[in-house]
Design a protein around this nucleic acid. Structure first.
Length: 276
DNA sequence: AAGTGACGCAACCGCGTGAGA
DNA sequence: ATCTCACGCGGTTGCGTCACT
């Protein structure tokens, strides 16, 4: 039987988005809110697939997206979370305010995976030469040796970005009702200059597991900040070390089982209202 | 200056899953 | 209980840009 295509592809634009398309999509979502992606293109007058619209919005046009260099802190967090979660990019992105799963995935594939591989090879070689010296060079942590360089993404084309400053302001101070409806009314607190992770709950109801997961990473305070997570030594949790504890891949079933266990025991916050 | 390979980002594709009929 | 629909996610690809020769 097969799945019907998400949309008829006849007559639809593909490839890079134009400034005009971005503006149309942004204006439409600003006015009507997210959701109903399937019908959105028709209603907005876009010759695009709904999926494409959704992707464009989530990965590029959303006003709260942080673009540009990924900081060393963020990088370390990505590495740690990847150890913990495997290729659960959306979950990882949920811990990094303003970062998208696509961006993190790309960053991992182009930068971090290589470095983690190198690191793994290096430590494996070191271990084979001298078991006693293992991990000393990493500064005692699981990530120590590959985070010293300043990360600089290549300057890329930005000419097509349409930024609506009003929208940005609205989003930061009081989110548009279309985006924040069904949310708790109070404004998220900033901790150390970072917003608590709200992106999961922005996708209200789409992924209860990850929403709970987000909340429950909050160490009981209903708040999240980068430094808190960085202070967590995930390596202490069950000897999570690439190439050792879980075999060849952090995304192995064992990692999944581990994450599942976390979700089951420590991460069953039933109420999304703890962020308030 | 031109050619070419490598790199990185944006976008696409297909599958899994939950909700509703 | 089953089916369909819509959405979200992760893997992959296409293409623009950069760096090197």
């Amino acid at each position: 039987m097969g799945r019907s295509p998400c949309c008829s592809k006849e007559g639809l634009n593909r490839g890079a988005w134009t400034v005009l398309e971005d503006k149309i999509l942004t204006d439409y979502i600003k006015q009507h809110g997210e959701g109903s992606w399937r019908n959105l293109p028709k209603r907005a007058g876009l010759k695009r697939c709904g999926k494409s619209c959704r992707l464009r919005w989530l990965n590029y046009l959303r006003p709260d997206i942080k673009r540009g260099n990924i900081s060393v802190d963020e990088e370390e967090l990505i590495i740690k979370l990847h150890k913990l979660l495997g290729n659960r990019w959306s979950l990882i992105a949920g811990r990094l305010p303003g970062r998208t799963d696509n961006e993190i995935k790309n960053y991992w594939n182009t930068n971090l995976s290589k470095r983690v591989d190198d690191h793994r090879r290096h430590t494996a070689a070191g271990a084979s030469r001298n078991n006693k010296s293992k991990q000393v060079s990493t500064g005692g942590g699981c990530n120590g040796s590959f985070s010293t360089n300043v990360v600089r993404t290549r300057a890329t084309r930005c000419s097509k970005v349409f930024i609506n400053p009003d929208f940005c302001d609205m989003n930061r101070v009081t989110k548009p009702s279309t985006l924040s409806e069904n949310k708790t009314s109070s404004e998220p607190k900033q901790i150390n200059g970072l917003l608590p992770v709200m992106s999961e709950s922005d996708n209200e109801g789409t992924d209860p597991v990850s929403s709970d997961f987000t909340l429950d990473f909050d160490m009981g305070e209903g708040e999240f900040c980068l430094s808190d997570l960085l202070n967590l030594d995930f390596c202490d949790v069950g000897e999570l070390d690439y190439g050792n504890a879980f075999g060849s891949s952090p995304s192995s079933d064992q990692t999944l089982a581990f994450s599942g266990e976390m979700l089951k025991c420590g991460f069953e916050s039933p109420v999304a209202g703890s962020i308030s």
